[in-house]
């Protein structure tokens, strides 16, 4: 019974959730006008930090995940403070360079990172959770689930909670003094500054939040997969994450969520798409920029869908 709890579907669901986190990690800096191509790098920092903490020091996964996200966030601050003097294109290139440096370090720091082979035997969240509930005398079979069904279900639910909390955080922040500062910087940096907004502070804040979220997604990725290698965090990953956000709609958070869901599902549903995925991505980016640079979902579309006449700034 309960066959509908299919590990394969749950696995895809988990990937979608991780990709939503990654898309949001691009969206947040973008909401203050910062395009970061370093998300794959920050993701890698989170993944490696958490994996190494749990493998080498036997720390609980939760400590590893929080540690991974924090290290990525702190790196975001360190990189952010000086490089946010740079605008637009320069920042994009600097973060792209950063991402590559991080990857090269993963490949070459053999003694710690095991080089291009990567790390294996990373403790997996699902098993840990299973052990935990067993400690309380609970067996999946008691609710009619097989062990692996239970494991995948728990991972999915845990990720779901984390993603929901993240979205809740970002939306609440958006509709506040902090969010208004982000969007005013995005729209006109100089005017924002002359309204008393400390633009350096808010830019670093949004950039570091993005780094933190990417690091969080990375460390969760490591503990879901159980193995990681530098190629998981290459430039292609950064581009893929960027596409989630840009395709779905970079002005609204729901755009990032939609982009991550849609673009993760499509290659799974349409197998033939999978092979040509990047070719399609490439064409899509070009067409999008020319036809609909704000992405599929935007404020106008959303307010029409909801049939609301209220302030279009309200949903940002």
């Amino acid at each position: 019974m309960l066959d509908f709890i299919n590990p394969y579907y749950l696995q895809i669901g988990s990937f979608i959730l991780i990709n939503i986190l990654l898309a949001v990690s691009v969206y947040v800096p973008l909401s203050s006008g910062q395009l970061s191509l370093g998300s794959a790098g920050f993701m890698g920092v989170g993944a490696y930090t958490s994996a190494l903490l749990t493998i080498n020091f036997d720390l609980p996964i939760m400590v590893g995940v929080v540690g991974g996200a924090c290290v990525a966030g702190i790196l975001g601050i360190i990189i952010g403070i000086p490089s946010l003097r740079l605008t637009g294109v320069y920042l994009a290139i600097a973060t792209l360079g950063l991402g590559e440096v991080i990857r090269v370090i993963f490949v070459n720091w053999d003694s710690v990172t095991k080089g291009s082979i990567g790390l294996t035997g990373i403790p997996q969240i699902g098993r840990e959770l299973l052990n935990l509930v067993r400690g309380f005398g609970f067996e999946p079979s008691m609710i009619g689930l097989k062990n692996n069904q239970f494991v995948f279900l728990m991972v999915f639910l845990l990720l779901f909670i984390i993603v929901m909390a993240t979205i809740w955080f970002v939306v609440r922040q958006q509709n506040s003094r902090v969010g208004r500062s982000f969007s005013s910087i995005q729209m006109d940096e100089k005017a924002a500054e002359s309204m008393g907004i400390n633009i350096t502070y808010f830019k670093v804040l949004s950039f570091a939040q993005g780094a933190f979220l990417a690091g969080l997604a990375g460390s969760l990725f490591a503990h879901v997969m159980g193995y990681i290698s530098p190629s998981d965090f290459s430039y292609h990953r950064a581009v893929e994450i960027l596409i989630f956000t840009v395709f779905g709609g970079s002005e609204v958070i729901i755009g990032s969520i939609f982009g991550a869901i849609f673009l993760t599902l499509i290659p799974e549903v349409l197998r033939f798409v999978s092979e040509y995925r990047y070719i399609i991505y490439g064409i899509m980016l070009v067409i999008l920029m020319a036809v609909r640079p704000q992405g599929i979902l935007d404020i106008h579309l959303l307010s029409r869908v909801k049939g609301l006449k209220r302030s279009k700034g309200g949903m940002r």
């Binding site: 506040s176 005013s184 700034g313």
Partner: peptide
């Protein structure tokens, strides 16, 4: 801030006379 409502524009103007940060906002 052209993509913001008139009201929000003025609210941004009040930035320096307010103080809530990330934590209190969330």
């Amino acid at each position: 801030f052209s993509q913001m409502s008139a009201l929000k524009n003025v609210m941004v103007g009040g930035h320096s006379r307010s103080s809530s940060g990330v934590f209190s906002s969330v």
